[in-house]
């Protein structure tokens, strides 16, 4: 065939596996072919199709920042056939990766702005990519605030990084767990993300809010953001939908006439308000 096969994945070697939380792991992946690795570029917010040969593909964001080339990371919860098979992989084994796909967070347009990240549970990975991206270019942004909650202390992902971020003086971080999810030595907040957000009362002027979490968290967080004065144009999220091709052909991820894989996954709340509730 004269043109390359767009469904052929890069071969990636699992360089490091981190256990994040019960059933949640992070893989650090390096390109088997150095040349492919050197050419590979992506931007914050993009995703890929990760595959276990013999089991199939699954859609996950790229959780590492583009400011750290040479590798990518993905964080996943063992839930279905492919993530189940991924979880069984060991360091040194090879998996497939197609990408990067989808649009990006417009970080270039956010220079000189405050960034407010709000995440829940397993939805921190797509924002973690942006957080590290911003921290690696720290002087381009003003205040950076992260509000992150999970059901329990055990369910928090990137525990080491949360500690690392808390120790840095250049960002503010609030971690919270649902009531009953705390441990005796838990020092963070106790309560749901929307309540913690309201209490934190971040300023909305010159601030971009990035929200990612389970549907119920998003549903209850958006009204709080509106109350705090955040406009729909300055409120960003990243959608997920069942996907197969990732490149606007297979039809699975359509929301109205839009493809989450091509027109998203990053949308502003203003854009979401125009979409039918098919996500």
């Amino acid at each position: 065939m004269s043109e390359p096969n767009i469904y052929q994945p890069f071969l990636m070697r699992i360089d490091k596996i981190t256990e994040e939380a019960p059933l949640v792991k992070t893989f650090k992946l390096v390109f088997v072919n150095d040349e492919e690795g050197k050419k590979f570029q992506f931007k914050a917010g993009q995703f890929g199709e990760y595959s276990v040969f013999g089991e199939g593909e699954c859609t996950l964001c790229i959780a590492s920042p583009p400011t750290r080339p040479g590798y990518i990371e993905c964080t996943f919860r063992q839930a279905g056939r492919v993530t189940g098979a991924l979880a069984g992989k060991e360091e040194g084994e090879i998996i497939g990766f197609r990408g990067p796909y989808g649009n990006t967070f417009p970080l270039e347009q956010w220079q000189g702005k405050n960034l407010l990240f709000i995440a829940g549970g397993i939805a921190l990975p797509p924002l973690r990519c942006v957080i590290w991206n911003a921290l690696d270019l720290r002087d381009r942004f003003k205040e950076i605030t992260v509000i992150y909650g999970a059901r329990s202390v055990a369910d928090l992902v990137y525990k080491q990084e949360l500690e690392e971020w808390a120790k840095r003086g250049d960002l503010k971080i609030l971690t919270t767990v649902d009531p009953g999810g705390e441990t005796p030595d838990w020092k963070g907040e106790i309560g749901f993300v929307p309540a913690v957000l309201e209490k934190a009362d971040p300023i909305c002027e010159n601030t971009v809010a990035l929200v990612c979490g389970p549907p119920i968290m998003i549903k209850l967080t958006l009204p709080v953001l509106a109350k705090l004065g955040f406009s729909p144009e300055n409120t960003f999220t990243t959608l997920e939908n069942r996907m197969k091709c990732g490149i606007g052909k297979c039809g699975h991820c359509m929301v109205g006439k839009y493809f989450v894989c091509k027109d998203g996954p990053v949308f502003t709340l203003a854009q979401l308000n125009q979409l039918p509730p098919e996500y």
């Binding site: 595959s51 040969f53 013999g54 089991e55 199939g56 297979c250 039809g251 699975h252």
Partner: peptide, 8 residues
């Protein structure tokens, strides 16, 4: 519209 599946 199509699906992608592995068989091994």
């Amino acid at each position: 519209c199509f699906d992608i599946q592995d068989e091994s």
